[in-house]
Design a protein around this nucleic acid. Structure first.
Lengths: 221, 221
DNA sequence: TTTGACAATGAACTTATGTTTGGGTTACAA
DNA sequence: TTGTAACCCAAACATAAGTTCATTGTCAAA
């Protein structure tokens, strides 16, 4: 990594030590820890080099917080534990399939065996408690750019904001569908994700939001 | 998890907050942080409960060190279980965007800063070394059921088997596209993922496979 | 040689943060 | 009642740990 080579030896040592210390302890070292490990006996020098590393994009610092350090770039031969531990996998219950003609059951029997692992970053910071997953069955969601077999991650909710992609139950049409949601006052506009297709309009009384779509994941064979 | 249920509500909240704070900041919270987040306004009470959590085997503490905390057990989260996993999450280099009219550069400068984290299960057992990610720009892949902003995970390859979804460079059309690949001997048939659309046929000499699509991930706002 | 940017120093300083103390409440058993 | 255990509280305390500053060394450009 070219960028890495441009750092001073001290700075590289600091990064190595950071990485090592994190794996060892689960939290970042102090300035004095770093100094002791890299042979720098002035905290200000460590501080100076830490700021250099921030400038170079290798670190993040939170001012005036003890151990307010974070590795944000992989380093050669590093274990990158920091980077990885910032993003945990979440086991999201897989509660079934979504098929046109059937409402989605959003109060599922908890079945941990049927769980999907999702990187937390794909949940947009939503409380994991409210998250569930569905597999789309059939081609009924094609106008939402969602194919047969796709996994849809949703947040359980009964309300939506304009622009959200939601799973809605349309009792007039007797189907569940995934569309972008727009409240136009007198009616709800449901816009397909595929821009070549037109919207449908429904009365809000016939439009029950079941969940907000957070992400869609498709696994090819 | 039975052990978890035996904890007091405060103690469970502390664990939830710890977990949340760690993912958010990359380092553990202070006693006062925990207190503020869980409605405990005495540091000694937080301290008391932290020690209880150590006894129960959920935490490790390092005495007299600031933020000397470490979660050592997965926490059930209502019906979701957090998995602190380092090896089932892979960092895949994100090498750019795929846009109609431009070939994909599959020999990228590896920049670990621009990496996406993907659960290993979504890589279908492919050697992680060969995996890279692209963001799709524009609506040119709509016939492949892939929308603007989608993240596509690919395996670097120049060959494909029938039925694979591949990224191909079509020099006659001067574009890169994602299609299902079928070698029909005399020609290559490229089938859009959207079953309502028809295939295109090209000579194999004008069809350069750049990668096989492993999965597609879409993150909604 | 002078200049200036960069790097290093160590001590003083400030504040962030863990620990202790002395005292409370509640529930329950003896 | 008394005692005890588990839990909770506020404030005082001690120290862990980040920041600042005046000064010095290094080295290349002017």
């Amino acid at each position: 990594m070219k960028e890495f080579e441009k750092l001073s030896e001290r700075q590289r040592n600091i990064l190595f030590f950071m990485d090592h210390y994190m794996t060892e302890h689960g939290f970042p070292p102090t300035i004095r820890d770093i100094g002791a490990a890299t042979g720098i006996d002035s905290t200000s020098v460590v501080n100076y080099n830490l700021n250099k590393l921030v400038d170079a994009g290798f670190l993040e610092r939170v001012a005036s917080k003890s151990r307010g350090l974070r590795l944000i770039k992989a380093i050669p031969n590093g274990r990158n534990v920091m980077v990885k531990s910032t993003d945990s996998l979440l086991r999201v219950p897989h509660v079934g399939t979504i098929v046109a003609g059937h409402p989605v059951n959003v109060e599922p029997e908890v079945d941990h065996a049927n769980a999907v692992e999702v990187p937390q970053q794909w949940l947009s910071g939503v409380d994991p408690k409210d998250v569930f997953a569905l597999t789309v069955h059939g081609d009924s969601m094609i106008d939402a750019m969602i194919a047969d077999g796709d996994l849809v991650i949703l947040r359980k909710t009964t309300t939506a904001r304009n622009g959200d992609m939601v799973a809605v139950w349309l009792d007039e049409r007797n189907e569940t569908t995934l569309k972008y949601f727009y409240d136009e006052g007198s009616r709800i506009r449901l816009q397909p994700a595929n821009p070549t297709m037109g919207p449908i309009f429904v009365d809000y009384r016939h439009c029950q939001v079941q969940g907000k779509v957070l992400s869609v994941m498709r696994r090819l064979k």
